[in-house]
Simulated assay, not measured.
Amino acid sequence: MKYQGVLKKMIAEYSDTIEYYLEMDNDFLNLNQLLDRKIEIEFVNYQCLCCNKQKKTFRQGFCYDCFYKQPSTGDWIMKPELSKAHLGIEDRDLEYEKSVQLKPHIVYLALSSEIKVGVTRKTQVPTRWIDQGASKALAILEVPNRYLAGIAEVALKKHVSDKTSWQKMLKNDVFDADLKIKKQELIDYLPEEVKPYILDEQEEVLDLNYPVNKYPLKIKSLNIIKSQNFEGILKGVKGQYLIFEDGTVFNIRNNEGLVVSLNL
């Protein structure tokens, strides 16, 4: 059976084993049900997720022009400490920035390869952790805006990474650690203005289990534009990656805005 659509971030539902769905033009594919099945992926075209024009994607599924115009791609997305909506200062669209920045945010610790610190809107828990392929995660702060989350992250990443080794994550080569103990070690490094927002010790570590039947020993990243097509047996889904039997991995998030056909 053949499906076609523009790639968008996979939808993930938290359960004992994460459920993954991929949106196509007229269907949602439950990827958990496709494990151990052969899948053929073929590159068709580009389609900007913003203007819908068939223009080469630049970043986050947007063409170059849209990426530098849309408020959802401002620098404060990747660097929360640059947020200024709490001061009434506009970056690209103040009303949009207020709608995102002036909402509760979570600062967290996660285990995806090593311990890392990160920031997400409260409404994105646990989706953000799933998208990173974290095996465990612990919320350590809940702050009222993105700026406070950003300055907390800046302080903590001097002592713990803010990056994930995607290769280790996909091999399930995960360093184990007690996130509650690490939280206590890091509290002293937090700026004074965020310390009132430290979550209490009742906050639980969340365990995340992914639909993976076989982890690869060696990894090959699929460039579908260069290869034009690929065929392989799906062995797992983790983070925003499809994992195939031969060690090939395909990052759906990095390929947003590509129109592909899937032959099952």
Rank of each mutant, 00 (worst) to 15 (best):
Q184H: 15
Q4E: 12
V125I: 00
F43H: 09
R59S: 15
K226G: 09
I77L: 11
D93F: 01
D25T: 08
Y189I: 06
K163G: 07
I41L: 03
P126N: 03
V212Y: 04
N32T: 07
L22D: 02
Y3L: 13
L190N: 03
K103W: 11
I18F: 01
T164V: 10
K2S: 09
L242E: 13
P191A: 14
K163E: 15
R146L: 05
A152R: 07
Q101D: 04
Y3D: 14
V154G: 09
K9G: 14
Q54I: 12
Q101I: 00
L262S: 08
G247Q: 01
D246C: 05
V174G: 01
K183M: 03
D16W: 05
I140W: 02
A149H: 02
E97H: 06
K183A: 00
C66W: 05
G74H: 02
P196Q: 12
Q167Y: 09
V119F: 12
G74R: 12
S99Q: 07
L87E: 15
N251D: 07
S221A: 12
Y46W: 15
K171R: 14
Q167W: 00
V107N: 07
V249T: 13
I252C: 11
D200G: 08
V249K: 02
V160A: 01
Y21F: 11
Y215I: 13
L7G: 13
F28G: 00
C63S: 01
K235A: 00
Y189M: 12
V6I: 10
A85G: 12
T73A: 14
Y46R: 03
